[in-house]
Simulated scan of single mutants.
Amino acid sequence: MGAMSVRIDITGLRPDQVAVVPSPLAELGMALHTLAEPQHHPGLQGWVTGVTARLEAHLADRMCEADFLWRTTFSDLFLPYAGLPGATALPGATLAEELDLLDKLSDEQFVAAALEFTCALPYSDPGPGPLADAALRRRALELAAARGPQQVRFSERLLTDPPLIRAWLRQFLTDCDEAFFAETWSRLRHQLAADARHKTELLRHKGLAEALAAVSPALSLDDAARRITVDKLGEGRTATADSGLLLVPTSLGRPHLMVLHRYGWHPVLHYPAGPAVPAAPPSLDQLTLRMSALSHPVRMRLCRSLARSAFTTSELTHAHGMSAPEISRHLSVLKKAGLVSTRRRGRYVYHQLDVTTVARLGSDFLESVLR
């Protein structure tokens, strides 16, 4: 398996076109993601428990209706300013302002972004959306069917009546703000503003390379080639062109470093601010088993899928072009190492990576060789 990365062409990018701005809508997206996948964020268990305990049943039910928009990581719909034409689109100061920006996306943009995780649409390349392409629309509904009746209903309504779903989503996000997010944002926004000021100072006085190094060690700048490379288990490309580069800090989003590289949208780096949370290492035998399980290139590729969502063996067979017995054999190795969990929903059996365990492997290894 060769090196994989997302590349951002920054030819012609001026220093004044790089902005670091917190986004309440992006942070609400990460809040919903954390509530849907708390194991991605072990340091936020207390916050998750507190919010869940006082969540009204009606809002919790609505949260399940469209959770594919934020469960896998989160949808580009939470960064709508990146889809707007012109070089000056930035996050709003308030959630209401950003919901107004979301309303400015076209129906085509909204539907394509909403179906990203269901439909596997072309992401970095041009192409028609599911509103215009009947084959894509059929494929989206077939994939939704594998996820259950709730996702089928949502996808059908989205494709049939985008304005209805857009109004639903805006009302839902407003209700989440009133129920729990306004209080959370009032605490987080000062930390995120401070981080944005710090990165902006680095940009101004030290340059883009220093600022990117402070954002994440996974980012590197090749000044001669005018390219930023993001070390990711995925391929992608985008360009700043005349639109600039936006960096959005998140407190709830650790450890996710996300790159918006959708065709026709401005590039955005959505990066974790604040310290990581340490955890106790496993036994040396467990550690050896886990690292050995992850050393196989096919299992590494499977982990890329399983880290983002739960998949059936059949879905993995289709996505990776392998036979069901091959997939099952690799899943068995990952499960024996305690890296993959399995759960049944109706007649489907879903597998998912235990990202909390995988996230600890680096520090686990270091502590094991030092003790």
Score class of each variant (00 low, 15 high):
residue 148 G to A: 03
residue 132 A to L: 08
residue 135 A to P: 14
residue 131 L to T: 15
residue 131 L to D: 02
residue 157 R to Y: 09
residue 127 G to K: 04
residue 136 L to M: 02
residue 115 L to S: 02
residue 150 Q to C: 03
residue 129 G to T: 04
residue 150 Q to Y: 04
residue 156 E to W: 01
residue 121 L to V: 09
residue 118 T to N: 10
residue 140 A to L: 06
residue 128 P to D: 15
residue 115 L to P: 00
residue 126 P to N: 00
residue 156 E to C: 05
residue 110 F to W: 15
residue 121 L to I: 15
residue 155 S to R: 01
residue 105 L to C: 12
residue 109 Q to R: 12
residue 118 T to F: 01
residue 141 L to G: 00
residue 147 R to K: 07
residue 143 L to M: 13
residue 108 E to H: 04
residue 137 R to E: 12
residue 145 A to H: 05
residue 103 D to W: 03
residue 146 A to F: 04
residue 150 Q to I: 08
residue 129 G to E: 04
residue 102 L to S: 07
residue 160 T to F: 07
residue 117 F to R: 05
residue 132 A to Q: 15
residue 151 Q to P: 03
residue 115 L to E: 08
residue 134 A to R: 11
residue 106 S to N: 14
residue 127 G to H: 02
residue 103 D to M: 12
residue 114 A to C: 06
residue 110 F to L: 15
residue 153 R to T: 09
residue 149 P to H: 05
residue 128 P to I: 02
residue 123 Y to E: 14
residue 121 L to W: 03
residue 149 P to I: 00
residue 103 D to S: 13
residue 116 E to G: 14
residue 146 A to Y: 07
residue 143 L to Q: 13
residue 107 D to V: 02
residue 113 A to N: 06
residue 132 A to E: 15
residue 146 A to H: 07
residue 112 A to N: 12
residue 128 P to A: 10
residue 154 F to L: 13
residue 137 R to A: 12
residue 119 C to T: 10
residue 160 T to K: 14
residue 158 L to A: 03
residue 130 P to N: 01
residue 108 E to I: 04
residue 145 A to Y: 08
residue 136 L to A: 10
residue 130 P to H: 01
residue 119 C to F: 04
residue 133 D to V: 13
residue 125 D to Y: 09
residue 160 T to C: 12
residue 139 R to I: 07
residue 127 G to Q: 02
residue 143 L to V: 08
residue 119 C to V: 06
residue 126 P to D: 00
residue 149 P to R: 03
residue 146 A to S: 08
residue 111 V to D: 04
residue 118 T to S: 04
residue 138 R to I: 10
residue 139 R to W: 05
residue 131 L to H: 09
residue 120 A to V: 07
residue 101 L to C: 11
residue 144 A to C: 02
residue 133 D to G: 05
residue 127 G to L: 05
residue 106 S to V: 15
residue 110 F to Y: 15
residue 103 D to H: 13
residue 148 G to S: 05
residue 124 S to F: 02
residue 120 A to W: 05
residue 101 L to R: 15
residue 118 T to A: 06
residue 152 V to E: 00
residue 150 Q to A: 07
residue 143 L to S: 13
residue 144 A to S: 10
residue 113 A to S: 10
residue 105 L to H: 07
residue 155 S to C: 09
residue 159 L to C: 14
residue 140 A to K: 06
residue 103 D to T: 06
residue 104 K to W: 10
residue 146 A to V: 09
residue 144 A to N: 03
residue 102 L to G: 10
residue 101 L to W: 11
residue 113 A to D: 02
residue 131 L to P: 01
